[in-house]
Nucleic acid binder design. Structure first.
Lengths: 187, 187
DNA sequence: GCAAAATAGTTTAAGGTTAAAAGAAATTGC
DNA sequence: GCAATTTCTTTTAACCTTAAACTATTTTGC
């Protein structure tokens, strides 16, 4: 508005996406929209670079990241749980990564319904390169924020996370345990 | 790990998704993963409730939110820009919403390539209800975080946003203008 | 005027995503 | 033992999403 030209090619971010009446000045809503904007901005750029640089996608990268931490392989179900996506989703992702020769799957001997997946040697190499680049990219994108601010942000986001989890979970002791005890290692 | 049981049904969030070597303790990476966790947690819950309560989806809600702020209608291209999604994406969303009778589209007289979309009366009503609920949901999810912390978080996320935009955009004067001048209204 | 370029949208091919239904194998409870 | 249940995974139908190719229309540059 303050600029005359109709900003012909400027995208508009999520903070203006969900409109619901500007008179509704709830802090919560503004916070959520800004959080969403930040996450989308970063995620979109990471996806773009993964595609451009490694011709791969974020879900594939995520899946391989899980496998990298489980050298002995991992069951599909566990994978789906850790990635927080549906079983069917994992089925498809695994299929494509096997196709690419980056991971391998193998039916469990003890339980013939279950299947183990793990990185292939080539998959491990490929992932190492991607993880390095990924880490650099994130550091680059956040470089404008002083390290102290980053730490403060991280800390407050921890509280936010607890708030959200608290509001979502059935309030059962299970969720509480998970949040408090396993906190940052596996929340 | 600190808990004996294998946590049979506990999902694991994004902070453990991208694994790249735990010895890499970059603050940036940890911050990004936590940010992603928070955003995903909230977004998933909002999507779930939109489906459960209104039998709709977040993209549809977003689209209607844009239309609500443009009572005189809006061009598809402008819509796609504001939503930060591709043209083709908007084509499909509009199609479905027209089908549902929530929006209407109309070819422009002056430019027969262009099409205007706007909310129908029923669409406006429906959206009003959804927006109210949406606002309440967000407030509920964030309720555990003191209002002062929310404001602080919002403020720091503003800096983060600038950092990311600065790192992404070609550094041209256009991007700078957009970021500084239009700041929160339409960045 | 009119050919070339730019612009507005749609289509297509590929992939990610889910919920729900279904299939196959293992466990459980008599 | 074996029927009922649970568990692990795949399939299906629907949607969201994009990049690239394509169509239709308008503008621009002579």
């Amino acid at each position: 508005m303050s600029v005359t030209r109709p900003s012909p090619r400027e995208p508009v971010d999520a903070e203006s996406k969900v409109g619901e009446d500007l008179s509704n000045h709830r802090v919560e809503l503004r916070l959520w929209l800004r959080l969403l904007t930040c996450a989308n901005l970063i995620e979109a750029e990471i996806r773009r670079r993964l595609r451009e640089t490694f011709d791969t996608t974020l879900p594939r990268f995520d899946l391989m990241a899980q496998l990298e931490r489980a050298p002995d392989g991992i069951l599909l179900g566990e994978l789906s749980r850790r990635m927080m996506v549906s079983n069917g989703n994992v089925t498809g992702l695994v299929e494509r990564l096997v196709q690419e020769g980056l991971i391998e799957r193998q039916v469990s001997e003890r339980d013939r319904r279950a299947a183990l997946v793990r990185l292939t040697a080539r998959g491990a190499e490929t992932f190492a390169a991607m993880a390095r680049a990924h880490s650099d990219w994130v550091a680059e994108l956040l470089a404008g924020l002083p390290i102290e601010d980053q730490k403060a942000l991280w800390s407050r986001l921890g509280d936010l996370k607890l708030s959200v989890r608290g509001a979502i979970s059935p309030g059962g002791p299970d969720g509480v345990l998970t949040d408090t005890i396993e906190a940052e290692t596996k929340p």
